[in-house]
């Protein structure tokens, strides 16, 4: 089949979530999508299914049911042990052709944004990238896929009217995490992987894990940024502790770099890195335009400053007026308390 048109008697039904499982770790966005998928499936009136492709995934299947899947499609095969585009695209495409879901969603992670365009190309259907809002048009029942483009300067709602499935990658940490209910179960559909190791032209030689702090700034989901308000290099541990409490990455203004307190690779702004995290916490930063252009498209901005006129307040969703030396330790303590039994975002 070259393309996947709607017309022609084929029945495309069901919302599918592709669960990302790699290097022994399930990407939490998979469960966020089961939560979101539940809402979409309820509006359409169809089934919510999870798809798990990997090796030795029985525990992942249990989790998928716990997070709300009604049915789980599984391909469990050694060639799927580490993520590689070819066998993953083959596995997912095969399932889609056979069972014909109406909508398939995956996290807009490095893996999701690698394999989904490969799958969409094979199926000759549309794919919307990096969505932040999903909805169903009440009349047409089409999936409304909303995403930022032009570096976050605009939002666009995209439709895939006449081909199936409708496909999107969805940005992590945007949709709420659903409740995990132990002991739920449902139907498991097992299929075979059709590709063998000698047909695959890529090998993963090595994986070098990084800790939260070494995540590249432009990929960080939570950033704690510090400005000259910190007054001295010896006060930096104050913001480092705040960052640690959230698993956030530390960044700074040019003022701080010029003072020699932090290196240039931490600098956000016109002559530094442009960032777009889910949360940007600005501590003692005035909000000069050269700084703002590097961070104003962050999803949420929280600012702490003792000057009510500080420019940073104009872009902040929450502006805390106060002395950072009082406020920051309180924030750290409060976050630590809340995150005792888990990790942020």
């Amino acid at each position: 089949a070259k393309s996947a048109p709607v017309a022609g008697g084929d029945v495309w039904s069901g919302v599918w979530i592709i669960v990302e499982y790699n290097h022994g770790r399930i990407a939490p966005v998979s469960w966020e999508l089961l939560g979101e998928g539940r809402k979409l499936a309820d509006v359409i009136g169809c089934e919510l299914c999870a798809v798990i492709t990997g090796y030795q995934v029985d525990h992942v299947i249990r989790e998928a049911f716990a997070y709300g899947a009604e049915k789980v499609y599984v391909i469990d095969d050694p060639v799927l042990e580490n993520f590689r585009t070819e066998p993953y695209a083959e596995a997912i495409t095969g399932l889609v052709r056979k069972y014909q879901p109406e909508i398939i969603l995956m996290g807009a992670t490095a893996i999701g944004r690698d394999v989904f365009p490969a799958v969409a190309t094979r199926l000759r259907t549309g794919l919307t990238a990096d969505c932040t809002v999903l909805g169903i048009d009440p009349e047409t029942k089409l999936l409304q896929q909303t995403r930022p483009a032009f570096g976050g300067n605009i939002m666009a709602t995209i439709l895939c009217r006449s081909r199936r499935p409708q496909m999107s990658t969805v940005r992590p940490r945007v949709m709420a995490m659903p409740a995990r209910v132990e002991g739920r179960s449902g139907e498991i559909v097992r299929e075979q992987q059709s590709m063998t190791e000698d047909e695959i032209r890529t090998k993963v030689l090595e994986f070098i894990p990084g800790d939260a702090k070494s995540i590249f700034l432009d990929k960080a989901e939570i950033i704690v940024a510090v400005g000259l308000g910190i007054a001295s290099q010896k006060n930096l541990p104050l913001v480092e502790e705040l960052a640690d409490s959230l698993g956030a990455t530390l960044a700074c203004t040019r003022g701080v770099v010029e003072a020699g307190w932090m290196s240039h690779d931490h600098q956000v702004g016109q002559t530094g890195v442009t960032v777009r995290p889910k949360v940007y916490i600005a501590i003692g930063i005035s909000g000069a335009i050269q700084h703002l252009v590097g961070m104003e498209t962050s999803d949420y901005i929280i600012a702490v400053n003792n000057d009510p006129e500080a420019g940073i307040f104009r872009v902040a969703n929450y502006g805390i007026l106060g002395d950072l030396f009082q406020v920051v330790p309180l924030l750290t303590a409060e976050f630590k308390k809340r995150l005792q039994h888990g990790v942020a975002n």
Partner: peptide, 15 residues
């Protein structure tokens, strides 16, 4: 408002 969410700590640590 789900600006910051708590995820159960996963084996292998946070990505």
């Amino acid at each position: 408002e789900n600006i910051i969410m708590v995820h159960p700590a996963v084996k292998g640590g946070r990505a």
